[in-house]
Design a protein around this nucleic acid. Structure first.
Lengths: 348, 348
DNA sequence: AAACATCACGAAAACGTTTTCGTGTTAATA
DNA sequence: TATTAACACGAAAACGTTTTCGTGATGTTT
C-alpha cells in the first residue's frame, strides 16, 4: 500500500506547522483566510483525506458497529442486518459483520476480536449454543467494559441491556386463533429444541390460544426438530402417525418443507391442512401455495436496534445513564394461499 | 466507555518502563524471566488486551477487509459473504460489510469511507448502476492508492485486478443443451437488462448452445425483466403469447416465480415445460417441483476471493508485484423435479 | 509613548503501541 | 586490575491526528 498524504506532508510543503494545517482544514477562526485558502487548495489538489485510525485513536471512537449473528444465510437475519447497515451508514457508522455459526465459542472469539478498540458497540442475536448453555460471561465482560450492547430476537433475561424483539407469544396466539376460527381442531406445532427464546415464546402463545378456546392440547402434536439438519423422515413419520388439520411452524423453512412433504402425499393445502409460518421471507412468497406467515419485520428491527445502539454510544459521552429499554415490534399476519378464508380474489 | 488498561498503566504500577512491559508481554529475550513473570501475571490479572487501533496505526495494517455487495438479501451474495467471512476470520481478518443497494453513488461513498485506513483491501461485486454507466473511476482511485481489490461475479474488463467468477457461458450452454437433449425446441430465456456481465455471459451460452445444434434462435423467446420489480403481468403476457417448452432463467427468483405462474395456468412442470434456474439456493430447493439449477458455489467463491485478497495484502509487503489472476469456478448442474429424465427414483 | 487586545501561528502533549538504540551493571576474560 | 561481553532495561521516535496553551507581531486605545 502506498503511503497516503498526511498533514505532515502538507505542512512541510507549505512551510507551516502541522497544527496550522489541521486548523486550516477545519476552517478554524484562528487561521487567516490567506493561509486557509492555500492549505485547502493544496489538500484538495492532492486529495488529502484524514486517516481514520489516527482520529479514532485520538477520539476513542471508531464509528464502527459490531454485529454478531448466528447465521447470515437465513432471510430473517439478513433483513435485520440490512436494517442495521442502512441506519448505521446514514449516521456515519460502518458495520463489522461476524457470524457465530450458532457456536458459543465463535461468538466469544468474535466479541474479543472486536472489543479492543475496533468497535463502539455490539448488536447481536445469541447463538443456539449460547442459549442452550446459558453461558453469558462474554456479554457481562462487555458490560463491565461499558461497551454498549443491543440484543435482538434471540435474547436472554439474564443480561441487562437494550433489546429488540417481536411479540412472539401474541403472534403465535394470533396464528393459532386463526386456525381455530377456521374450524381447525388438530393443530400441530413444528418448533425447534426448546432452549430458543423465540420458540419458547411462540410455544407459549400456541398453548394460550388453545386454552383461551377451551381446546385441549395434545402434546403429541408438538414436533421438535433440530435446527441444523431437518430430517425428512422425522417429518413424514410425524404426519403419517397423526391426524392433523393445521400446522404452525416457528420458521419458514420448517413450513415450506413440511408443506411440500404433505402435499407430496396428496394432502390438499389449504383445504385439508392449513399452514402458517414465521418470517415472511422469500420462501413464503414463492412457496406453492403461498405461505401465510407472521411477518417479523426484520428491516425495522434492524433499524431500531441500530438506533438504540447509536443513541447509547453517543449519549455515553453525556449525562447520566439512561435506563435500558426493550422495544417490541408487532408481528403482522400476511395471508396467502396456505390458509383458508383469506384473500378472496386470487390466491397468490 | 470505560478506559481500558494500557501498557502505561502496567508500567507505572510495576515501576518499569513502557518498553519493558511491551517486550515482556511478547516474551522478548531482552527481558529477565523475573520481570516477564511479574508483567505477565499483572497483565493477566487485569485482563490486558492491546488496543487494535494503536497497533494498526503503527503497523499500517488494519486486518479488516471491506466487502461491498449490491444486495445482501439474495441467497447468492449471502453465501459468498459467508465464504469471505469464514476464510477471513480464520486468517485473523474482520469483515466490514457494505451494501451498495445497486447504486453507484453508495458504492463510491462506501469505498471512500473505508479507503482511509479502515481496511486493507476490498472485495466487491459491482452494482447494477455501475455496470450500466460503466463508471469505474472509484475503482481506479483505489488502484492508485495501491489498495488491493478483488472483484467477484459482477465484474468488468475495464479494470485490472484479481477476479473470481463462474463460467457463465458454459453453464448456460450446459443447461440449454440439456433441454435440447430432452427434445425441447422452443426454449425461452428469462434474463435481466443486458448490462449485467453475468447475464451477458449466460445469454451468450444460450445462443451458442442453439447454434451448436443448428437450432435457430427466436429473439422473441428472450424476456428481459427489470431486476428491481418483476411484474407478474409481463411474465404472464410473455407466456400467453408464445409457444414455449423450456425456460432458462438467470436467477432463481425469476425461475421460481415464472414456474409458479405457468403452473397456475395449468401448465404441467416438467412434462409440458421444463425449468432451469441459476443459483442453487433455498428457493430452488423448496420450490414445487424442486428447481433444477446451475449451482454457483457462492461459498467457495467467497473463500477464494478472500484468499486472493489476503494473499495480495500480505505479499504486498514483500517482493515485486505478482500478475493479476482470474479464477473461474465451475458451475454444476443440480437436477430436481423441474426437468425430465433426471433423478429416477423420487422427484424431490 | 505606554498599555493592552487582537491576530496568526507554532510547540508540544496526548491517544497506545512497537522498535531501535543507548547505557549502566554485572560477570567473564586476559 | 583493566578490558570486554552479556545482560536487563529505559529513552525516545514513530504512526497521524486533535487540541491546549504560549508567544511574537501587529493594531488600538489612553
Amino acid at each position: 500500500m502506498k503511503r497516503k498524504i498526511t498533514l505532515k506532508h502538507i505542512a512541510r510543503e507549505l512551510e507551516v506547522s502541522i497544527s496550522t494545517v489541521s486548523k486550516a482544514l477545519k476552517n478554524s477562526a484562528e487561521i487567516s483566510d490567506d493561509t486557509k485558502q492555500k492549505v485547502q487548495a493544496f489538500a484538495k489538489l492532492y486529495n488529502y483525506r484524514p486517516n481514520n485510525l489516527a482520529i479514532s485513536l485520538k477520539s476513542r471512537r471508531t464509528n464502527n458497529i459490531g454485529v454478531i449473528i448466528p447465521d447470515i444465510v437465513h432471510y430473517f437475519f439478513t433483513t435485520v442486518f440490512r436494517g442495521i447497515e442502512q441506519y448505521s451508514k446514514k449516521h456515519g457508522y460502518n458495520v463489522i459483520a461476524c457470524v457465530s455459526d450458532e457456536s458459543l465459542e465463535k461468538e466469544i472469539v468474535n466479541m474479543e476480536m472486536l472489543a479492543n478498540g475496533s468497535v463502539d458497540g455490539f448488536i447481536m442475536a445469541l447463538s443456539a449454543e449460547t442459549q442452550k448453555t446459558k453461558d453469558f460471561d462474554h456479554l457481562r465482560q462487555i458490560k463491565d467494559l461499558e461497551i454498549p450492547l443491543v440484543l435482538f430476537d434471540r435474547i436472554t433475561d439474564e443480561v441487562e441491556c437494550d433489546k429488540v424483539l417481536i411479540n412472539d407469544k401474541e403472534a403465535a396466539f394470533t396464528a393459532v386463533r386463526k386456525f381455530i376460527d377456521n374450524g381447525r381442531k388438530r393443530i400441530a406445532l413444528i418448533t425447534t429444541e426448546d432452549y430458543f427464546s423465540v420458540s419458547q415464546g411462540r410455544e407459549a402463545g400456541y398453548r394460550q390460544a388453545h386454552e383461551s378456546c377451551g381446546l385441549a392440547i395434545d402434546e403429541d402434536l408438538i414436533l421438535r426438530l433440530s435446527f441444523r439438519d431437518l430430517d425428512e423422515g422425522d417429518i413424514n413419520a410425524f404426519f403419517d402417525a397423526r391426524d392433523v388439520d393445521a400446522v404452525l411452524c416457528v420458521n419458514e423453512i420448517f413450513a415450506a418443507h413440511s408443506m411440500n412433504l404433505v402435499q407430496q402425499k396428496g394432502v390438499k393445502v389449504p383445504e385439508e391442512m392449513e399452514f402458517i409460518g414465521f418470517t415472511d421471507g422469500i420462501l413464503s412468497k414463492y412457496a406453492k401455495p403461498g405461505l401465510t406467515s407472521m411477518a417479523q419485520h426484520g428491516f425495522k428491527m434492524g433499524e431500531i436496534a441500530a438506533k438504540m445502539l447509536i443513541d447509547r454510544v453517543e449519549s455515553n459521552l453525556g449525562e447520566e445513564e439512561e435506563p435500558y429499554r426493550t422495544e417490541i415490534i408487532k408481528s403482522t399476519l400476511v395471508e396467502r394461499g396456505s390458509t383458508l378464508n383469506t384473500i378472496p380474489a386470487k390466491l397468490v
